[in-house]
Structure formats: structure tokens, C-alpha cells
Design a protein around this nucleic acid. Structure first.
Lengths: 347, 347
DNA sequence: TTGTATGCGTTATCAG
DNA sequence: CTGATAACGCATACAA
């Protein structure tokens, strides 16, 4: 009875607050706050009493209140094209792991390659007063840029790298990846090299890769050859590319660079079924190094993006900006990552 | 000068607040709050003025403050074994999509199949006063259960289903999946059927599947045959299982059920290299239906878990509990999902 | 090292 | 339909 009769507050979660702990420990509430944030500044005697009170009351700090009071919550928002895609998940995973090791939480949203959805996500995230924000790529709406600029917090663009951008960038040059693939095939002696694009609208990075390919072709005195599938799903699009480019009677493609491994994989399956010898009759190069790529027959030659590294390094840069860890030198160079061309059987 | 000379607050983000909007619109701040939360309760005239003020001030609601005042933030925490895994990502994606359509944000953490890491994540999440919490599976630490119980918010366990659990469950019975695989192979006439486990510690669900398999074997008067790989990576473990079980001289396995498709895939590759005819010499069944499974040679017969559906339905149940959408009937039955056995070439 | 007063931006309560 | 006031739980500024 008596313990229940304590005048209950009109609102509130009913959970113990920092004041309850302070009262139980016989200290000021600010000391409890320090006990969590700057333990070194609290004497051993008080620390002990506070620890006991915390335990007996099952105290859990209210992070929202803390964030409100300190104007920035220990939260970082991340907008990624899609969570369940074969590659971005690794970035999310490593990013989240590094952050949570330092007491920051990940707030996640997906844009499905739509800059408008990205804008909506950024807008919502800012409502949480996040400590930092991560977006994918360098293509955003005007309003997103405006929001990012006025937010006055660290912003990182991942999965791309362009010189002289305003925000921190952690990624690689898609343009150079396109060049890399084209050079590789040219060196192998292929001439009739096509580039099969993605039917997903909004994947601007794939366009950059295509342009890198095109420029290398022109340098070599060859005409770039673009194929834009009309099929909706990657599976159908890859098949369509294979049928259109490699199975034509005259002037068939000797090699095809695909916008990603999904397309390339379905092309290999289609080719296999049609009895096309790969790479002799048609060489295939992908992008992404998805899990299945090494298991195909022929195994897929592809370019591996540093997905996990991107997440890790982005998190580190943010923690540096936030003063959580000492700053690295030569950040500029560290942020520009390299992709690896994995030479397998298909090219 | 004059516009800058407005006495600046000592603290704060510098962003416009609800009071700024109220002043600009000539209304009380609570009316602005209502304008966002219950637009129907605000007259058209005031709504117009508020809308203008919001726009001109670039007002963005501070969600942390709102969450603090209303004791529950529009946030839902989700703990998942791993984000970058081949199947959970789909659950995350669909869960996040449904939630964000209703103005809830996803706070994500991974446990790596460790109940201790799960506990830590739950603890942190609770600090945000989330509207609801989602965990994976039914195995938790005592402290986690305690936290979940006292949190007094909707809790959903995903990726599993056991009768008479305390929390809402959205998933399927791993035990029945194990039974399903065993029955399928027995029906095909296989007798010497082994189960290759996962070397990842903490994957309790895989144990449930194994037990389902074992019981069906016993029912059929056959001895269950467990193989526990020592190899660390799934790739090596699958290969090891194949070599140990199917390539032995005498009494080799006629069929192997693998704890997941990663193991099964590497087994198929190893078998292929060793010239083992599948399924004639050894049939293979996986679990998960990962992206590469249909691309293998032979394509992998596997059991597809309803990953996307789990995320969707979990989100719906939460939104129902929160009163955001009308409640469904027969929730009990709806939450028990079925896995589909995909009959392909390997078994 | 510790404590007091006050503000963070919003919503619940209650009154018009 | 609208508004004044007081929480929400914590951290900053400043003082002791």
C-alpha cells in the first residue's frame, strides 16, 4: 500500500529517472548524469552508491531526453537505395557495427533510387536531431542539398567519389570502374564490346560506369555500344541483353559489360541454356561480386566494390568529426577506395 | 543587423520551433501541434496561416521533443541476427517500408546470433522510448525477457512460431521445416539421409529444424544422422560435409539436408568438382532460397522462408497494437506463416 | 568534485 | 475550435 501511495506523476513512462537514482544515492541528479557521461569526474565513493541505485531501480537513461537537452541525439541517419539488395547490406552492417560500438544508433531508411524518397527520409531524420547523416551517391534534389547544408552536422556521401564535392565522400569512382572493365576486355583482344544497362530508373551510378566504358572505347577508336533493356526485372533484362546482343546472326557482341551482377548472372544462365560458349563466343563482365557470382558456370568475372569498407570508413569519418575518435591524416586519400576486378571464367 | 540582434537563446539547435511558427502565424503553439497531429481539429483559416508560417520558417518538427513529451517516440527498434545475411535483409526492408509509410522510423541493430548482444541492443532501444520492439526468435536472456516485459509496449518475435508464447509471434515453425525436408526425401525413397548443421554458434532455429528432421527419421524407423562441421566459414563447412558424408567409401549419405543454402551451395560446388552426380548419387536440400540457389548446377531444392511477409506482417501487427490501423481478425492464424519447398534439380 | 537553476521543443491537461 | 500552463527527463552554464 504505502509504496503505491507515492503521488504518481500525471505523465511519464513510469520508469525510473535520473532524479530517482540521485535521490536513492543521496546525490545531485547532475552527478548521476556525469557518472554516465564522464565517469572520471565522479569520485569512487559516489560512483559506488550511484551504481547501486541504478541497479536496484533498473534505471535506463532516456536517450530522447538526453538528445533533446544536448541538441544532438546519439543517432545517425542513413539513407540507402535498398536494404535487401545484394551489396548495400554489407555497408549497412559494417556502418552499424562501428557506430554502435561507440554508442550511436542507426536510423535507417531506403530510397529505392528515388531522390524524392531520399529527400523525405532526410527530412524525417533531421527531425531526430541526428549527430550525422549518411546518404548514397552524389545525386540529390535541390531541397535535400538545402536540408543537408543547413543541418550543420557531418554529412557523408557514400558509394561514390567525385573530386571537390562539398560533403565528405567515402566511395569510389564509378566512371573509373567502367573504364577498368573496358580496358580489361580490350586488353584481352575483344573489339565488339557492348554495355548492358540497368532497367531500374534512377541508378545514376550505373550511367557513370557506362560513360567510363564509352570513353575508353572511343579512345581505342571503337564505337561504344549501349543496350537498354525494356524488361522490368533484372532477371529478364539480363536474358534480353544476351539474346539481343550475343545471339544475333551478324555482328554479335564478343563481350558484354553488365551494369551489375544480377543482369550478368541471368545472362550467363540464358547463354548456358542457348548453348553459347562463354567466354569464347561471348565474354561477360559484371559489377558487384554478388554471392552467387563465383558459383555460376562459367563463374562470373566481375568488379568487387568495397561495400563493407565503405560502411566502416564512413562511420570512422563521422566519429572523427564528432570528436569521438582521433582524426586520421590524409583523409582525402583514405576516402577514395578501389574496386577489385576479379578475373574468373566468364571473361 | 536588426534581424540578427534578436536575443539568441543560449542553447538549442537554431532551428525554428513550434513557438516560432505559432508566433509567425499568430496562434498558440498548441494549435500548431494540432495542425500536425489532428489537422481536422484546426479551422481552415488557421491551417492556412500555419502552413504559410511553416513554409517560410522551414519548420521541421523535433521528433525527440515530441517523443519525450508523449512518452513514446514514433520509433520501432528491431534486433536481427545479421543485416547483411541473405534472408533477413528482406524482412528488414519490408518491415521498414510498412512502418515508414505510417510515420514510424526503424532503429536497427544486429545480434550476430548472440543473446547477449541482443540484450544490449534491447536495452539501448528502450532508452529511446520506442513505440514497439521486434526481436528475432524465441531465445533470449533472462534479462532481455525482463526488459521486454516491463517495457509495456508491443513486442513481436519474428522468424519463429511456438504455441502459447507470451509475445506476438510472426513466423513459422522451424521444427516443421525440418520435418518437411525429411518427409520429402523419404517420399522420394532416400534412406540414408543426413543433416548437416551450421557451425555458427547460437543459431538455435537451425537446431529446431534438425530436431524436426530427426523425429521424422525415427518415425520412419531410421536413425538420424547429424553432422556438425568444424570448419569456420559456411563455405568450408558445406564442402567438409559433402566430403565427409557423400564421399565416404562405405555407407555414404544418399541425401543431405543442410542447415542453410550457403552450406548447401558450397556442397554442390564441392560435389561438382569431385564428379558426384546430384541427385542420383547424393541429393541435396537447403534452407533459405538464397539468390544463388536457383543458379547452381544442379539448381538447389530448398525451402523458402517467408522473409518479406514476416516483415510486413510484423509491422502490421505493431501498427494495429498502436491503433494506427484497424485490427485484423484471426491474428493468431495469420501470424503462423508457411514455408514453401521449392523442388528443383538437386533433390 | 559536486550542486542549483534553467532550458531543450513538444504534448497532456484542463479551461474556455 | 483554441489557448495557458505544466510536465517529459536530461544536460548546460555557472557557482560553490
Amino acid at each position: 500500500m504505502t509504496q503505491e501511495s507515492e503521488a504518481r506523476k500525471r505523465r511519464g513512462s513510469g520508469r525510473a529517472t535520473i532524479h530517482d537514482v540521485a535521490r536513492a544515492a543521496g546525490v545531485g541528479s547532475i552527478t548521476v548524469s556525469r557518472y554516465f557521461k564522464q565517469p572520471a569526474q565522479v569520485s569512487a565513493a559516489l560512483s559506488l552508491r550511484i551504481a547501486a541505485a541504478v541497479k536496484s531501480l533498473n534505471y535506463l537513461p532516456n536517450l530522447a531526453a538526453g538528445g533533446l537537452a544536448s541538441t544532438h541525439a546519439r543517432i545517425v541517419g542513413m539513407v540507402i537505395p535498398n536494404i535487401s539488395g545484394p551489396i548495400f547490406a554489407h555497408t549497412i552492417q559494417s556502418f552499424s557495427d562501428v557506430l554502435s560500438a561507440h554508442g550511436y544508433q542507426l536510423l535507417l531508411a531506403s530510397s529505392y533510387f528515388s531522390v524524392e524518397q531520399e529527400e523525405a527520409a532526410v527530412r524525417t531524420f533531421l527531425g531526430w536531431s541526428p549527430a550525422a547523416l549518411v546518404v548514397t551517391g552524389q545525386y540529390h534534389t535541390r531541397a535535400t542539398v538545402q536540408l543537408l547544408n543547413t543541418a550543420n552536422i557531418p554529412v557523408v556521401e557514400t558509394w561514390d567519389y567525385q573530386p571537390r564535392r562539398k560533403y565528405m565522400q567515402v566511395g569510389f569512382s564509378h566512371y573509373e570502374v567502367g573504364q577498368q572493365a573496358a580496358r580489361y576486355l580490350l586488353k584481352k583482344g575483344y573489339k565488339r564490346i557492348a554495355f548492358a544497362q540497368n532497367s531500374v530508373a534512377g541508378d545514376e551510378s550505373a550511367i557513370d560506369r557506362r560513360d567510363g566504358y564509352a570513353d575508353i572505347m572511343r579512345e581505342a577508336g571503337l564505337e561504344p555500344w549501349f543496350f537498354l533493356p525494356t524488361a522490368a526485372t533484372p532477371f529478364d533484362a539480363g536474358k534480353q541483353a544476351m539474346e539481343t546482343l550475343a545471339m544475333r546472326k551478324r555482328h554479335a557482341a564478343e563481350a558484354i559489360i553488365f551494369a551489375n551482377d544480377n543482369l550478368a548472372a541471368s545472362a550467363i544462365l540464358a547463354g548456358q541454356r542457348a548453348g553459347i560458349r562463354m567466354p569464347e563466343q561471348c565474354a561477360i563482365v559484371g559489377f558487384g561480386d554478388y554471392a552467387m557470382s563465383s558459383m555460376l558456370l562459367p563463374s562470373l568475372t566481375t568488379i568487387r566494390p568495397p561495400a563493407k569498407e565503405i560502411g566502416e570508413i564512413a562511420a570512422m569519418r563521422i566519429l572523427e568529426s564528432l570528436g569521438e575518435i582521433p582524426a586520421s591524416k590524409n583523409v582525402q586519400r583514405l576516402n577514395l577506395l578501389q574496386c577489385e576486378l576479379l578475373e574468373r571464367e566468364s571473361a
